[in-house]
Design a protein around this nucleic acid. Structure first.
Length: 779
RNA sequence: GGAUCCAUAGCUCAGCGGUAGAGCGUUCGCUUCACAUGCGAAAGGUGGGAGGAUCAACACCUCCUGGGUCCACCA
């Protein structure tokens, strides 16, 4: 007997337990049947649930539908360590405690982040269960579990052996605050109000928004077709430091921008880097990784004392103060022609919003062209279908066809280290940064130059930060001291390296240190379908390639395209047959949900209040393919009202109603009409789910259940049953039709609102004793 | 600069080559049993603008206007 009003909270917990205990989410491999597989887009282990996760509803609908069709259905859950995201959050936490990552050696920092994430990882799982997701928890994987990590390293080695990995000194997007490089995809762009400065370079004048970089200029370039510059001097002069540089011509320079002359700074600008490469220009380093200017390179050594004094004023300043100071000096020397307010877009770190500094730092790259080609062909040949096709295939092709080599190294600790080792004896110029442990904290200076005691988890008390090349440090500190307190290495481009860790292949030495760069998170998640399923060879053989990948379209390039590339590379087969893309959840005014706007709807609060089913239905009902999902509390209330219509439960109490049979005697015109409607409904719901039109499928179900079945048929049958002139037999026929239609509607609704439907099913006299989630889909 | 999507009821959005749909909101009425988290009814749209192919368009094509989003080396 059910409560009169539906109490979702109690019911949901009970029902989920019923499913879990029955192991219904764990498929049984049956080679005679075709499996249905979905890999859950792995949530960040550290993230609490948000509406994006609630949208996994779409996957649950597919999983439940296919399970009811009798297909061995695997929906595989997991969690991602989310390298940069997580380290960024953790560092913010450290900052609140007046600490920074520079206070810890990498091993300690890693362990601290590990512990921090571990707490949230289990919360995450519970939250997914609350929404009723039929995930196979027995196959749960975490991106940092040893087996998964080992497979990632294997992929790296395989790529290396196939000549697809290289260590390159190229210009990369560097965030001086996060202290790491990013791939091109991880840079956001913001419009800024800045200035553009016109500067006097002797024979020519140039325009720049970044005057502080003039010290690293090595040339000026003009467009070869620019008539203004047909007869220009071949030499320009960098103001302030009076260094002569050549004037080149290059088609990349736009004639009509600024003065038409571009200063070439190969170390700090992507275009300049490219021009520099073409012309064999030198790269002058003037900025450290912490974003402070530095004039200690050899270019500046031979300058006059007067000039050196100018540079001293800028030395060690951060970019913006350095810019101000440079402009001030330029003004003083009358080299600033004009300064104009200028609106332009700048690249910023997608995590912390700091302006990205393009810098030349050796990084690990994957050659992507050979991987992209088969990934493009697979979609062209229809081996993987993208839904909705029209809109997103083009995006996929555009991205893969224009792809550039992928920087997979990150200068953070939170992630697997790149499995490459450097021999210190063969590479004396490797710069080492490590913390030396000390027994006398009072004599020790902290990272900010202040005496400081650092304590954490009793790992160490007090430490001293040491930096320098191995050449400089080798006689002062033991290898073990360096190794155990290591923060990071700065390895010159020409250093030798190897994949074996035991001893140096050149000198047989054993003072080897592993690369301190870690993998881009997407390098791990790009192999996720392969690596998770490979945990069990039988699983891989049966469930790979997976059936559907469902995700928000915005990570199509980040994730989907990379899974395609790596999946095909590793297995020769596409990782999924269909990519289904859904849209993002927006508020009732169509605006993106964000904390600052205060329009965030929290899925857990909502499901506590109205039930998970109501939330699920609100997320899919009437939503067009890949269009934004406008969600409001009002809509959820509406859906809750629907879920609460557990019609006719009371009527059947204590009655022995015969089971409906086709063409049973006594069927009326109304009965036949309803039965026909049910048939059409069943067909349409099935058709729409197959076509990924969940919005339509749920809408027609809603319409039928409420307005056709409940409002009309049920209302009429109520009158009929109360009517004493009608025979008992006739009433029983009506009731069996009612029950038949009702049970079928429950089945059809189950993928969308699994909890209520299962609860009613459990309380209903029926032929089939197994739970609703494994009962056969109506035909 | 390139690409792409959107414009339909007060709001948020579906759908469709052949008499305009839903949810929420609004108005009026009903309501001792499946459900007030309800039932019945009603009001409300010359489908952004202009043109074109069609027997016929809100739907197809072109252009315009206004928004969204993505990509790109804007010094």
């Amino acid at each position: 007997m059910l409560d009169k009003t539906y109490q979702p909270k109690e019911v949901e917990e009970k029902i989920y337990k019923l499913w879990e205990d029955g192991k219904y989410f764990t498929p049984v491999i049956d080679k005679k049947k075709r499996p249905f597989t979905i890999i859950l887009p792995l949530p960040n282990a550290n993230d609490p649930m948000h509406m994006g996760h609630a949208l996994f509803t779409v996957e649950d609908i597919m999983a439940r539908y296919h399970r009811m069709l009798g297909e061995p259905t695997l929906w595989l859950p997991g969690a991602d360590h989310a390298g940069i995201e997580t380290q960024f959050v953790f560092e913010k936490k450290l900052a609140k405690e007046d600490k920074s990552r520079f206070d810890f050696d990498r091993k300690t920092l890693y362990q601290m982040i590990w512990n921090y994430v571990e707490k949230n990882r289990s919360i995450n799982r519970g939250q997914l269960k609350k929404l009723g997701f039929s995930l196979d928890w027995s196959r749960y994987h975490y991106s940092l579990e040893p087996e998964i990590m080992e497979r990632v390293l294997e992929t790296f080695r395989k790529l290396y052996q196939d000549g697809l990995i290289y260590r390159g000194e190229r210009i990369v997007n560097f965030c001086t605050k996060c202290g790491t490089a990013f791939s091109d995809l991880e840079v956001d762009y913001q419009e800024r109000d800045d200035f553009i400065y016109y500067l006097d370079y002797g024979a020519i004048s140039i325009a720049t928004t970044r005057p502080e970089t003039i010290f690293a200029d090595v040339a000026v370039a003009v467009n070869p077709k620019d008539k203004k510059y047909l007869k220009v001097e071949k030499t320009a002069v960098i103001p302030l430091i009076n260094i002569a540089i050549p004037v080149l011509s290059d088609a990349l320079v736009q004639k009509d921008f600024g003065t038409g002359a571009l200063k070439i700074t190969p170390g700090y600008d992507p275009v300049d880097f490219e021009i520099g490469q073409k012309n064999g220009l030198e790269i002058i380093p003037i900025m450290k990784r912490n974003g402070r200017l530095d004039f200690t390179s050899k270019r500046f050594a031979s300058l006059s004392q007067e000039i050196k004094d100018k540079l001293t004023q800028i030395q060690n300043l951060k970019v913006y103060p350095a810019r101000e100071k440079t402009v001030e000096l330029l003004e003083k020397e009358k080299k600033l022609i004009k300064k104009i307010p200028y609106k332009h877009t700048v690249g910023v770190c997608y995590r912390c919003g700091t302006v990205i500094e393009p810098m030349v730092i050796p990084q690990w790259f994957v050659k992507t062209k050979p991987l992209a080609k088969p990934a493009i062909e697979a979609v062209e040949r229809g081996l993987t279908k993208i839904v909705p096709k029209k809109r997103f295939e083009k995006m996929y092709f555009d991205w893969l066809k224009n792809i550039r080599d992928w920087n997979i190294s990150r200068q953070i600790v939170w992630g697997p280290q790149i499995p490459v080792w450097y021999c210190l004896d063969c590479n004396h110029n490797i710069e080492l940064n490590f913390l030396r442990r000390s027994c006398h904290p009072e004599f020790v200076s902290g990272s900010r130059g202040m005496p400081k005691q650092v304590r954490h988890d009793n790992v160490y008390i007090g430490s001293e930060k040491i930096s320098g090349t191995y050449q400089e440090l080798r006689n002062k500190y033991s290898f073990e001291e360096i190794r155990s307190g290591l923060q990071n290495l700065v390895v010159p481009q020409d250093s030798s390296y190897q994949l074996a860790s035991d001893k140096c292949e050149k000198c047989q030495g054993t003072k080897l240190l592993q690369e301190t760069d870690t993998f881009d998170t997407w390098f791990l998640s790009g192999q996720w379908p392969v690596n998770t399923l490979k945990s069990n060879p039988a699983d891989f053989a049966y469930f790979y390639p997976t059936s559907v990948l469902d995700t928000l379209w915005d990570i199509l390039p980040f994730w989907v395209a990379r899974m395609m590339m790596l999946g095909i590379y590793l297995t020769g087969k596409v990782p999924f047959k269909t990519v289904h893309l859904h849209a993002r959840v927006v508020d009732k005014l169509g605006q993106k949900m964000s904390k600052s706007k205060g329009n965030v709807i929290d899925p857990l609060t909502i499901s506590e209040k109205y039930g998970a089913d109501a939330l699920r239905l609100a997320l899919v009902l009437g939503v067009g393919p890949a269009s934004d999902i406008s969600l409001s509390e009002e809509k959820i209330v509406g859906m809750r009202n629907f879920c609460n219509k557990r019609f006719l439960l009371l009527n059947l109490e204590g009655k022995s109603v015969p089971f409906y049979k086709e063409k049973m005697p006594g069927l009326t015109k109304e009965d036949l009409k309803l039965l026909k409607s049910l048939k059409i409904l069943t067909k349409n719901v099935t058709k729409n789910i197959d076509a990924y039109k969940f919005g339509k499928a749920s809408e027609i179900l809603y319409q039928f259940a409420w307005h056709e079945f409940a409002d009309i048929y049920l209302e009429n049958s109520k009158l009929k049953i109360q009517n004493s002139k009608i025979s008992e037999e006739e009433k029983l026929v009506t009731l069996s039709v009612l029950r038949h239609v009702y049970l079928n509607v429950l089945k059809l609704l189950h993928p969308f609102i699994p909890f209520v439907t299962e609860e009613i099913w459990q309380n209903f006299p029926r032929k089939n004793n197994s739970p609703l989630l494994v009962s056969p889909w109506p035909k």
